[in-house]
Design a binder for these strands. Structure first.
Lengths: 162, 162
DNA sequence: TATTGTTATACTCTATAACTATA
DNA sequence: TATAGTTATAGAGTATAACAATA
């Protein structure tokens, strides 16, 4: 009949202890697990992780400029353009005139944008709870804290290469 | 004249509490922080994260096939080819004949490969210690455990990519 | 001169599909 | 028919560089 598949679908069956020693690999795998589950959720709303994140920041900072949005998301201005184009085309945000500086735009959510954000936020929150079902509230808080401490480590931010 | 610089170079200064609510974003930022620091380290050895990981798995599983390597690294066979090509071209591994199945190769490190691996492993370990300097041994172990629990959550594995 | 937004371009990573040579 | 490895290709995602309008 059938075969004894090398790997049913989940079990690694292969030794990777050598790789698991390193924090980066464990981090990448956990991140990709969350990302893989999140994408289809956002897709159902016509969003991508990048556009979802941009919405979140704009909600938090009404009338933010594209340059500032890029700083918040850690992406280049040229990349922000594509994301904002996307959100504007979907009628979720508007690029508004800024009095005093005709070079920049003040980004704001439309009514449709606010409605979609409410839905998106809830769905992503639900997905978070699903993916974190095995962790207690204290463990979730602790995990975020540990992640943030790595991100903001004195040696991490300097930014340049080595 | 002057202005009030939006952001010196590191301080966010922008509210992103809305984004920080979600585990995925915190995870992504911490992961990218580690990755950004790790790449230049590996680059100095002529490696990329992918080739480093492949070396780690081959060291752990002598005579592993390319298909199995792909399963261990969670990448497609076509992607494995490029990585193995890379490592072979650098004279770090060899594709060896397998008796009983002329379709597959048994991957093994060369002497040069073993020497480089020893160096690479040490350097990545050092980088890990640098990036994790702010975490106690217990916290590091706990972090890995929490990450692995997310990765192997019952709900995480099942799905296809989408 | 410097900055904002924009465009064009390129590079990395990874997936899909089709092909070959085996099994 | 199915599998291992390969190739070609395409799609995200993101970066760099150059440019126009404005400061």
């Amino acid at each position: 009949m059938k075969r004894i598949k090398t790997s049913p679908a989940s079990a690694p069956a292969l030794k990777d202890a050598n790789l698991r020693r390193f924090m980066g690999y464990n981090m990448k795998r956990a991140y990709l697990t969350i990302d893989a589950g999140l994408r289809p959720v956002l897709e159902g709303l016509g969003l991508r992780p990048a556009t979802f994140s941009a919405l979140a920041v704009i909600v938090d900072n009404p009338d933010i400029t594209q340059t500032m949005l890029g700083q918040a998301l850690h992406i280049e201005r040229s990349g922000v353009v594509l994301i904002v184009d996307d959100l504007e085309a979907a009628d979720l945000i508007t690029r508004n005139k800024v009095e005093g500086d005709r070079r920049s735009y003040a980004l704001r959510l439309t009514l449709k944008g606010r409605k979609l954000w409410a839905r998106a936020r809830q769905m992503v929150e639900d997905h978070d709870n699903l993916i974190l079902a095995g962790l207690s509230p204290q463990e979730r808080t602790l995990l975020k804290d540990l992640l943030n401490r790595i991100e903001t480590a004195p040696l991490a931010e300097p930014g340049e290469t080595t």
